[in-house]
Design a protein around this nucleic acid. Structure first.
Lengths: 341, 341
DNA sequence: GTTAGCACTCCAGGTGCAAGAGTGCTAATA
DNA sequence: TATTAGCACTCTTGCACCTGGAGTGCTAAC
C-alpha cells in the first residue's frame, strides 16, 4: 500500500519531468523531485518494476526512463493533478475571446487560431456546415448555363453551389425553384432533412419547373453538403517547436494528414462529446506517431462542433486540458447568447 | 564572342545540374554535360571568371560551384530554354482541371491544391472577394440582437456579415434594409462602389429605417470586405521535399508567413499581371530566404486573380513556368466560359 | 525493505587519419 | 593567346578510436 503509493509518485515525477525537459529521467533526478526521502537505489528498484509493468522504458541501457504510452495513459487518467488556471491565464483567454468575429464560419476559423496559440498545439475544429435551422433558400442565374443555389442557416452560415445545366435559366424559373426549395426546407434543422423531403422537392420541381429536373443531382449534393461538417485547421506549424518533431521527415506525414479533411473528420469524430485525451503514441495511424490528441465537444448553434488539438505525447496535459475546458465553456456561452432563439 | 558563348553555356550547365542534384557542380561534371569539347581546366578558368562576376560561388575552397542569386536571375532571364509540355503533361493538367468544382470559392481552393501538386511547390491564390457584379443583397434576423447581411456576386461567391445591435431586428425592417442595399449596390461591380454610394445608402437608411443607422460601421466594413481580396494557400508542406528545407527551423518562418494572409497579399500583389519570376534568395524578407516565387495573373470573373507558387531557389524554373502558363491559360478559359455574360 | 558501493553499459563529443573531390597555379603546347 | 596536362594543395566526409559522464543493475550489508 505504502509502496504502491511511492511507485505512483515515481511515475508521476518521471512523466512530469519528461514533459518539462524531453530528456530521459534518471533515478537521481526523481529522488530530488519526489517528496519522499528514499535513496536513488530505491527509486531505481521502483523504476525497474514500473518498467516491467510496461509503464516506463529505457531508450538505451544507460539512460534514464521515459514514459511509455501506457504510462502516459495511467498518468492522465489516475495520477495527474488538475491544473487550476490563474486569473492571468483566464484573463488572457477572455481577451482573445473578445476579439473573435461573430459570423459562425469566422468564429470557427478564429477559434482554431486562438486555441492553437493558447496551447502551443495544432488545432482542428469540426463544425456542422449549417448551424441551427435553415433560414432561406435562393436560386439565381449566375451565367449563361449556370444556376447558383444558396442556403443560409440560422447562425448566418451561407453555402452556395453552382449548377451547370444545358438549358439557359432565367430569373423567372429561378424564382420558382427558390420558392420550392424554401417551402420544402426552410425552418428545418439539418437533422430533420430526409430523403423523403428531397423527394417532395423533386416532385414539386417536376410539376412546376420540369426544365430543372436535371439539376436534382446538384441539389441533392448541395443538401448533403449542408448536412455535413466543415473542418478548420490552425497552427499547423506549432509542432515544430518540439525537438521530437524538428526533423522535417517526421512531421510531414502529420502535415499532409491535416490537409486531408475527410480523414481528420473521422479522427475527430471518434470522441464526439465531453473532453477526452487520446494518447496515440505508436498506435493508430502512422501519421499520428508520437502525437496526442485532446478533443472537446463545443456548442455551436443547434448541432455540436468538436474542437481538438494535436500535440506531442510529451504534452502538458493538465494545463492544456484546463485551457481547453475554460475556453470551450466560455465559447459555448458566447455562441448560445449570440444565437439564442 | 566565342568565349562569351562558352561561359554562358558553363553557367547554364552549372545551374541546370545544381537544380537537378542540389550538390555543388565541379568542372568535370560541367565538361561531361557541355556540348563543347574543352578540358576541365578550361572550364575551371571560366568558372573562376564567372565567380569574379558574382554569378557563381563556392561553398568552400575545394567544392564545386553553386549559382548565386544573380546567376539564377541571368539564367532565368537570358539563358534558359523554354520548356515545352509533353502531350502527357498537358493531359495530366487537363484531367485535374476537369475535376475542379464550379463555385468560385471552391475553384480557387481546388486550384491552389492542383497547382501545388503539379509544381511541387507551395501555392497561393489571391482572388477578388467578389467576382463580377454584385447580384443580390439580403438582410435577415439571425438572433435576438443579430442581423445578418449577405451579398452574392455574379460568380456565385457569397459573403456574410453578422451585425450586433442593441435593438431587436425583425423581419419587416430587415426586409426594408435588404431593399435599400439591393437598390444601391446590386448590378454594380466592386470597382464601381464608392464612398458616395455608401453615403446614398446611409441617407436611405436614415429615412426608411433609422433604427439601423447604428449598423453603418458594420455595413461599411462589409462593403470593404466585398471589395477586398481573399487569400488561399495550398501545399504548405511541399517544401519539405527539398533537402535545403529539411531542417524544421529553416522552414518555420516561411510557414508562419503563409498564415499571415495580409503579408502574403502584399507580396503576391507586387507583380499583379503577366507571369513573372522573383528569385529572392537572401534578399527581401527573411521568411523567404532561399525561396523563389513565380506569379501569374489569372482571369477570375471581372477582376483578376493572382496565382503564385513558392519554391526553393533551386527550382526547375522552365518546367514550372510552362506548367503555370498552361494551367492559368486553361483555367482562365474555363472561368470565362462559365461566367460568360 | 532499504541502502551504499561498485562494476558495467552506452552515448556524446572530440581527435586523428585516409580517401576523394575539386580547386588554382604553372609550364608546356598549338 | 587560348588551351591543356599535371601537380600540389585544401577541404569535406566517413571511419575508427578514445574518453568522460550519466545512469543502470546487482550484491552484500544494514
Amino acid at each position: 500500500m505504502e509502496l504502491e503509493d511511492r511507485k505512483k509518485k515515481v511515475l508521476s515525477v518521471v512523466v512530469e519531468e519528461f514533459i518539462k525537459t524531453g530528456e530521459p529521467v534518471g533515478s537521481k533526478a526523481v529522488m530530488d523531485k519526489i517528496n519522499v526521502s528514499v535513496s536513488s537505489a530505491t527509486i531505481r528498484n521502483d523504476m525497474a518494476l514500473l518498467e516491467d509493468m510496461g509503464l516506463l522504458y529505457q531508450p538505451h541501457t544507460s539512460a534514464g526512463r521515459v514514459p511509455s504510452v501506457e504510462g502516459y495513459k495511467l498518468f492522465v487518467s489516475k495520477l495527474m493533478k488538475t491544473y487550476e488556471l490563474s486569473k492571468k491565464e483566464k484573463n488572457q483567454i477572455d481577451v482573445l475571446l473578445a476579439k473573435v468575429s461573430k459570423t459562425t464560419t469566422a468564429i470557427t476559423k478564429d477559434t482554431v487560431e486562438i486555441i492553437s496559440q493558447l496551447t502551443g498545439c495544432t488545432a482542428v475544429a469540426v463544425a456542422p456546415a449549417s448551424g441551427g435551422s435553415l433560414q432561406m433558400f435562393e436560386a439565381f442565374v449566375a451565367g449563361k448555363h449556370l444556376l447558383a443555389v444558396l442556403a443560409v442557416s440560422a447562425t448566418g452560415v451561407t453555402k452556395t453551389k453552382i449548377c451547370v445545366t444545358d438549358i439557359e435559366p432565367n430569373s423567372e424559373n429561378a424564382m420558382i425553384l427558390s420558392k420550392i426549395l424554401s417551402k420544402t426546407f426552410s425552418g428545418r434543422s439539418v437533422t430533420q432533412i430526409s430523403d423523403e423531403l428531397i423527394n417532395i422537392a423533386k416532385a414539386e420541381i417536376e410539376k412546376s419547373c420540369p426544365e430543372f429536373i436535371s439539376l436534382m443531382p446538384f441539389i441533392k449534393e448541395f443538401i448533403n453538403e449542408l448536412c455535413g461538417y466543415d473542418v478548420y485547421v490552425g497552427g499547423e506549424e506549432k509542432l515544430f517547436d518540439y525537438p521530437e518533431f524538428s526533423n522535417a521527415s517526421k512531421i510531414q506525414p502529420f502535415l499532409s494528414l491535416l490537409s486531408r479533411h475527410d480523414d481528420i473528420l473521422k479522427i475527430a469524430q471518434k470522441n464526439p462529446s465531453g473532453i477526452e485525451v487520446d494518447i496515440l503514441g505508436d498506435q493508430g495511424l502512422t501519421e499520428l506517431k508520437n502525437v496526442s490528441m485532446i478533443t472537446s465537444g463545443m456548442y455551436m448553434g443547434s448541432d455540436n462542433g468538436i474542437m481538438c488539438v494535436f500535440g506531442p505525447t510529451r504534452l502538458d496535459y493538465a494545463k492544456v486540458l484546463a485551457k481547453m475546458n475554460y475556453f470551450t465553456e466560455q465559447m459555448s456561452k458566447i455562441i448560445s447568447e449570440l444565437y439564442l432563439e
